[in-house]
Design a binder for these strands. Structure first.
Lengths: 117, 117, 117, 117
DNA sequence: GTGGTCTAGACCACT
DNA sequence: GTGGTCTAGACCACG
């Protein structure tokens, strides 16, 4: 798979989003070991520092935790993952509705357009 | 009215979006004269150059045109405005659906969540 | 006829060029009376001041002369018109060759491309 | 080398033309890194922002692309470069022929004059 | 009074 | 060190 990063948006945040959705969607299971920084750097074709920065944010969010010399792991707190997922979704929904309203579309019209797709 | 610009996002792009919505929503009619660069600068409380940058993007998009020393005007090409509006909407819809799918939500689930809001 | 003025270039200079070529190409004959400022302004759909500025340049160039209350006329100096025409042509040729050379085309290649058109 | 910018013409557009010719003529190869904004500013003895403006036009044209914080690079799309070169040439040829025709010269006469130069 | 251009200088995020 | 953004302020051509 190719990763096409958007240049108008910090790469490390794009990586945060990728790994976050891997966790919330279950591609990465609770307790599972993450790739090493070097492996992610290769996979994403970015500078290792960029990966470090992304992972430290995930660690702040408690979505992953580090075992000192052993690697980084997905949290075992499934409740947290679930909450994170819902919070994420709600934010996206609200942002989306807000933008569409600004353009003059009501919720009903939006649903109609979605159905037609 | 107060303009609260989001700091994580270039002001000039936010101005582009504001004026674009004014055009696509009909607040600014085809052929209508825009405020002068200096007036927008006052209104938005930004530097005139920031306005210049925003307007030059709208001009690239053909949504407005400049009459040398006379001011800037909304395009008379209503077809273009309509296309622009639709393109804009479709992009937002697709982006939104893409993000949601990446998080593991189907179109039906999304519609359901929207209805519940 | 429609006049589509190029916005990136002063209108009065574009008018100078139009009238100049009318004179050098013989559309306007030596001694012939020009339109009035007002008539040109209507014809070109520009501000009368713009026409005045254009005509004053032509007068500086001696291509036209003013009879006080009577109007403006094409010069009777056919030699001048001819010289003007040649000078004009040579400048255009040189500019063109210069630009093309900068892009890496020799005179021979240019002639070849012209023939193929 | 000295850069003598023509005062009747925006410097940033003159820079656009210089770099465009360097790309289309192969002086700058596909994928090659451009000088930094600051280096160009020194070389051309202009303000960095003037360079920024020129480069942003080249980026709009897709002739160059930016790698965030890493520099700017010539596009790798050689087809695009070729098309750009040809389009550029054709435009110049057409403009030139158009002007000359307006002055009453046929293509044959133009070719004759070119040969005599 | 209008937009166009340019300068000087500053701060910031990113790698 | 790189580009991106923004400000303040200046001068100019144009109509």
């Amino acid at each position: 798979m190719q990763y096409n990063f958007n240049n108008e948006y910090p790469i490390y945040l794009q990586i945060v989003e990728i790994i976050t959705s891997e966790i919330t969607s279950g591609t990465l299971k609770p307790g599972e070991k993450l790739l090493s920084v070097r492996e992610y750097a290769q996979k994403f074709r970015v500078n290792p520092n960029t990966v470090v920065k992304a992972l430290s944010i995930l660690e702040d969010d408690k979505l992953i935790y580090a075992e000192r010399t052993n690697g980084k792991f997905v949290t075992n707190d499934e409740e947290l993952i679930k909450n994170f997922k819902e919070k994420n979704i709600m934010k996206k929904l609200d942002d989306f509705l807000g933008e569409m309203n600004q353009l003059g579309y009501s919720k009903e019209e939006i649903i109609k357009m979605l159905k037609e797709k």
